[in-house]
Amino acid sequence: MKLAGFLLLAAGWAIVVAAVALFSATALGTGFTLAGMGVELLGLILVVRAHIQRRGQSA
């Protein structure tokens, strides 16, 4: 789950970079940038949950 979370973080960043590179300052570019941030947020949640579970198992 941790690896998946970090992959989602990187994928979200890739979406954001692609959005500003391909669509520049358009509404579509802004939309894709926000979508990329959403993917990053999912990744962050997964990474955090993975670490909470690991702590629960080791306790």
Partner: peptide, 21 residues
């Protein structure tokens, strides 16, 4: 076009999506 907040958002995305991993 005053899209400064989008530029800042791209910076935040880079910190979370590239620097953190």
């Amino acid at each position: 076009g005053s899209r400064q907040w989008v530029a800042q958002l791209v910076g935040v995305a880079t910190l979370l999506g590239f620097v953190f991993p």
